[in-house]
C-alpha cells in the first residue's frame, strides 16, 4: 500500500511540475505568437520610448526584484508543501499504527478468550502444574492486549481537565517511589522554583498525568543502582512547565534511546528487570495528549534524563494560591 502511495505521489509531483513550466511559458508563447503575426503582416512600424535617467535605476531595480522574487516565492511555496506533506505523512503513520493495533486486538481477542474457556474446562489432576502455567500465560497475554489497547486508545477529555499543582503531584509520586525503593538505597531530591515566583499550575487530567509522572519516577527508581541519585527539577520556560526527572542509573545505549517510546520496546540492558515495555509509550501518549512533549537523553552506565514539557494553564486563573 505504501509503495503504491509513493508511486502515485511521484506521478502527481511530476504532473505538477509540468503544469508549472507550462504556466511560466504562457506569456512567452503569447508574445512569440503576437510577434509572428506582426511580422507576417509586414508591419515596419517602430516604438521608441524615452525615460529620464533618474528613473532608470529604479526601473532596473524593480525588474531585478521581480526576477529574484519569482524563484524565492516558488521555493517558499514548495517548502510549505513539503512541510504539509511531512505533517500529513506523520498523521498517516500514526493512523496506520493505530489501525494496526486495533487489528491486532481484534484478531487476538477471540482466540485468547477461547483458550481461556478451554483451559477452564480441563480438570486433570495429573496436569495441574501445566494448566496453571497455561492459565498464567493466557492471563499475561490478555493483560498485554489490554495495556496495548489502553495506550493506543487513551484520550484526554476536555471535561476532565483541572488546574494541577505539579509540585504536589511530584510529592505524591515521590512518596510512592520511596515505598518502592528500599529507603536509603537511592537519594531523592526535588527542586521547584520559589523565586521570582513558584511554578504556575498546568491544565491537565490529574489522573492521567499522575500515571505519566509516576511511570517516569518509578522507572528512575527501577533502573537505579545502590547509592544512586534521583533528581526532579522544575522550571518555567515561556508558556510551559518543564519537568526534569534525572537519575544516575544504568542508562540506555545511544542507538536505543529513540526506540524506547515505542510500544513493547525495551532496552538491551533491561533484561532481568521486570517491565512491560509499555510505560514510556504510555507517558508519551499522555503528555502529547496534553499538548506537551517528552524527550529522553541517556548515557549507558551513567544515567538518564527524561524531560516533560507541559503547557501552563491560563496565567490569570492559574496562579497558585499558596
Amino acid at each position: 500500500m505504501s509503495a503504491s502511495r509513493t508511486g502515485s505521489r511521484t506521478v502527481s509531483t511530476s504532473h505538477r511540475r509540468l503544469r508549472l513550466v507550462g504556466i511560466i511559458l504562457i506569456p512567452a508563447a503569447i508574445g512569440l505568437l503576437a510577434s509572428l503575426v506582426v511580422a507576417l503582416t509586414g508591419t515596419t512600424a517602430e516604438i521608441v520610448t524615452r525615460t529620464a535617467l533618474s528613473a532608470v535605476p529604479v526601473l532596473a531595480g524593480t525588474a531585478l526584484s521581480l526576477v529574484i522574487a519569482a524563484p524565492v516565492l516558488l521555493v517558499a511555496l514548495s517548502r510549505r508543501r513539503f512541510e504539509q506533506g511531512r505533517t500529513q505523512a506523520s498523521v498517516d503513520a500514526a493512523e496506520s499504527h493505530r489501525r494496526f493495533l486495533s487489528r491486532l486486538d481484534h484478531e487476538m481477542k477471540n482466540p485468547i478468550t477461547a483458550i481461556r474457556a478451554v483451559v477452564a474446562n480441563i480438570d486433570e489432576p495429573g496436569m495441574r502444574e501445566e494448566l496453571t502455567s497455561i492459565r498464567h500465560q493466557t492471563a499475561r497475554l490478555s493483560k498485554l492486549l489490554d495495556d496495548l489497547r489502553k495506550v493506543s486508545g487513551l484520550l484526554v477529555q476536555k471535561e476532565n481537565l483541572e488546574h494541577v499543582d505539579l509540585e504536589a503531584m511530584i510529592d505524591e509520586a515521590r512518596a510512592l517511589a520511596e515505598v518502592e525503593a528500599t529507603a536509603g538505597l537511592v537519594s531523592f531530591t526535588v527542586a521547584f522554583p520559589r523565586a521570582p515566583w513558584p511554578l504556575p499550575l498546568v491544565l491537565a487530567d490529574p489522573d492521567l498525568l499522575f500515571i505519566a509522572i509516576t511511570n517516569v519516577i518509578l522507572n528512575a527508581v527501577k533502573y537505579s543502582r545502590r547509592g544512586g541519585r534521583i533528581e526532579v527539577r522544575a522550571h518555567q520556560s515561556r508558556g510551559f512547565a518543564v519537568l526534569d526527572i534525572a537519575d544516575t542509573g544504568i542508562g540506555i545505549a545511544e542507538d536505543e534511546t529513540a526506540l524506547v517510546f515505542e510500544e513493547l520496546a525495551r532496552a538491551r540492558n533491561s533484561e532481568g528487570i521486570a517491565g512491560s515495555g509499555l510505560g514510556l509509550a504510555l507517558v508519551k501518549t499522555i503528555v502529547e495528549q496534553h499538548g506537551g512533549e517528552v524527550t529522553l537523553t541517556s548515557r549507558l552506565d551513567e544515567g538518564t534524563l527524561v524531560q516533560l514539557t507541559l503547557p501552563l494553564a491560563d496565567q490569570s486563573t492559574a496562579r497558585r494560591t499558596s
Binding site: D105, R149, G153, L155
Partner: peptide
C-alpha cells in the same frame, strides 16, 4: 474495547454489565 465511552453507551442502552474480551471465564 475498554473505552469508557463504549461501556457507558452499553449501560445506557440497557446492559446490566459488560466485560472486555479476552476475559477469565
Amino acid at each position: 474495547t475498554g473505552e469508557s465511552s463504549e461501556r457507558a453507551t452499553a449501560i445506557e442502552e440497557g446492559a446490566d454489565d459488560y466485560l472486555n474480551k479476552p476475559f477469565d471465564p
